[in-house]
Design a protein around this nucleic acid. Structure first.
Lengths: 186, 186
DNA sequence: ATAAAGATACCGTCTGGACGGTTTGTCAAG
DNA sequence: CTTGACAAACCGTCCAGACGGTATCTTTAT
């Protein structure tokens, strides 16, 4: 730390570290805690260093968004692997991922996504693009009203997880999941 | 404006104006734009004046939350009036209100609720209380999994409206609404 | 092979502005 | 004449970003 000039350069590692730290900070202390100072310090980098990787704060949030969307995409793709029914496959994967998020260890880190998303009108736009791309991609298999409905419900459940507003028992939760999956097949 | 000492004193009016302005600001420019300076200025009041009505910023957000929840409650109650089927009545009202929000003129102002809600852990807690109270109140008529599901879907639709992430045609939207209402009756 | 010539990856400090909140003062109404 | 409803100036803090530097990588020319 004292002599960081000498230490090995590992830009990709540092960049990753910055994103991780930013996610963790926002999770633990709210989005307000994500300041350039706090993030850089927690990542063991100077503020100048942070600003080298992300030219401004918006770029940092963008990077965070990209990272999280990428994880989301991967999770969905993974969930689609083991499903050989075409109809509603994407929707079922979406359901699976959304319902699993609260249990998952690093799933908590996702929460920052929405917060930033809602706070930053700019990210709202990017999310819209994601939805549009996916809707287009799976138009032939997942565009039925029932699939749409199921995905909306998943969003609702995910929001409830985020806000911790509903106290489910696991059985009800599982039942909901089953019912929604059934909807995706009709 | 120049000489506000002379103008008629109308505390309730000013208070209301402050809340309205705060809602509008958060809607148009994000929650970050809701600063004491901006709100007070846009409401034609000095910052001292604002802080007379709301001793600190948290109190302002609280007031906003109260106002919005009150409107929500009123809207739900109103929607329940014309419904004489007991089973799922609350859920149908909830659906009606959520689906109507984007069309409503001042419905847009609601959006601030979530944003503030997600940003402020403190408001998250209060929202949880609202949900719990309602869930308890209508436990006998609206606690079925299908009702729960319908309400979650409504939340999802509402979120989509908020983020402007989905482009519905009116027909699909109406169909969703009908399907969900049907669910509340099963 | 190697040395010069950039390019890249950082560090540490400074600044200007925004923002929440305080204080003191002023006017009006009851 | 006391209290409530404001105004206006001010304070301390925090924060985004600029800036100028330094050390390490990579490429290129010889």
């Amino acid at each position: 730390m004292a002599n960081a000039y000498q230490r090995k350069k590992q830009p990709e590692r540092v960049r990753q570290q910055l994103l991780e730290v930013a996610a963790r900070l926002s999770l633990e202390q709210g989005i307000g805690a994500v300041t350039l100072d706090a993030v850089s310090q927690a990542a063991g980098v100077s503020k100048g260093g942070l600003l080298h990787h992300f030219p401004n704060k918006l770029a940092l949030l963008d990077g965070l968004f990209d990272e999280l969307v990428a994880r989301f995409d991967r999770a969905i793709e993974e969930a689609m692997e083991g499903d050989d029914v075409e109809r509603g496959r994407f929707t079922r994967a979406y359901l699976t991922v959304c319902f699993a998020l609260d249990a998952e260890a690093d799933g908590k880190g996702w929460q920052v996504l929405t917060i930033a998303l809602l706070a930053e009108p700019h990210l709202k736009e990017r999310w819209r693009e994601w939805v549009a791309r996916r809707a287009d991609e799976f138009a032939t298999t997942d565009s039925s009203p029932n699939c749409l409905l199921a995905r909306f419900a998943a969003d609702g459940v995910w929001l409830a997880d985020l806000l911790e507003s509903h106290e489910f028992d696991a059985a009800t939760r599982a039942l909901l999941f089953q019912n929604l999956k059934a909807l995706s097949l009709q």
